[in-house]
Amino acid sequence: MNDMAHQGFELEPTKALSVEKVLWVRHWNEHLFSFAVTRPASFRFRSGEFVMLGLQVEGKPLLRAYSIASAAYAEELEFLSIKVPDGPLTSRLCNIKEGDQLYLGRKPTGTLVADALKPGSRLFLLSTGTGLAPFLSLVRDPDIYDCFGQVILVHSVRRVADLAYREELESQLADDPLVQDQALLQFHYVPTVTREPFRTSGRIGTLIEDGTMFQGVSGPAKLDPETDRVMLCGSMAMIRELAAQLEEWGFEEGSNAKPGDYVIERAFVD
C-alpha cells in the first residue's frame, strides 16, 4: 500500500480538495463495495451529480470521478465502487476502513439531474453495474416524486450477487422516512441478471422490446418522448446502444443549459 491514509499520515486539504473521514464500508462481494465519508458543512449537490474522490499515492492526490449515491439532504456522502485488482485507485480504495481519510472534491457537477430534463409523467432510470449510484441519490429525493408520477429504476448486472441495494429497493425504500410514502405508490424497481438464473433476465434493450420493463407500470408498454424521460448510466456499450435507440424514437438529449427528453453523464462518456 502506497497511499498515505493507511500509513498513519494526515492528509492536507487543498483549495480544490477537502479531507474527509471514512464512516463505514460495506463489501457486497469480491468486486463491489460501498462506503460513506463525512460531509463538509458547505458541501451542496444536486441528486445525480458526481464528485472527485481519491487517496494520496506517492505523495500526490490520485482522484477519480464518483457519482454520489446518498440523498442530497443526507448528513454523509455515500459511494458505490467496483474493485479493479490492478486499478491505480480502486486497488487501494477497496482496502479503506472506518476512520481512514480520503480526498473529496469541493465542486460536484454532472448532467444526470432532473434540471436537464423536460417535465414528464414517467422517469426511467436505466443502469448497469455501478451506474446504479446516481440513481440511488435520485430515488431518495422527495422532489423527484413531485416532478414525475412514476419513477422506474432498472438495474442490469451479470450475477445476482451484483444487485447491490436490492433489499432496500425491493422494499420500495420502506425505511426512508422522507420518500417512503411517495415511493410506495410511485417507485418501481426492475432488477435483471444476464448470466445467472433470475426472475428477470436479459439486457435492458430486450426488456424494452418485450415489454418486461413496463410490467406494473401505468401507461403504454413503450417509451414515448411526449411523456417519458430517461436517464442512462453504466457501461459504454449500453449507453451508446440505448441513446441511439432513443434518438430513433424521437427523444432529444438534454443538458443543464437545454433540458431534453433523456440524459447521460457526458463527463464519463466523453
Rank of each mutant, 00 (worst) to 15 (best):
G202K: 09
V217P: 00
I208C: 02
R203F: 03
V193T: 09
D181R: 10
V193G: 07
G202T: 08
T194E: 14
S218H: 14
R203C: 09
M213A: 09
V217F: 01
V217E: 04
E209I: 00
V193F: 10
F198H: 14
P191T: 11
I204F: 04
V217S: 00
F187Q: 11
F214Q: 04
I204H: 01
S218Y: 09
P197Q: 10
L178M: 06
G211I: 06
E209K: 15
D210R: 09
Q215V: 13
L207D: 04
T200Y: 10
T200S: 07
Q186V: 01
V179R: 10
T212L: 00
V193W: 08
G202R: 05
L178S: 09
G216K: 06
Y189Q: 08
V179S: 01
I208V: 05
T206W: 00
I204M: 03
T194V: 12
H188W: 00
V179Q: 08
S201C: 05
I204L: 14
R199D: 12
Q215E: 15
V217I: 14
V190N: 04
H188L: 07
Q182K: 15
S218G: 12
L178V: 07
R195D: 05
I208R: 09
T206F: 15
R203D: 06
R203M: 02
L178F: 08
F214V: 12
G205A: 02
E196V: 13
T194Q: 01
A183L: 06
H188D: 01
L178A: 13
G202F: 08
I204P: 04
L184C: 13
T194W: 12
P197D: 15
T206D: 14
L178Q: 15
T194A: 01
V190Y: 12
I204W: 08
T200F: 14
Q186L: 07
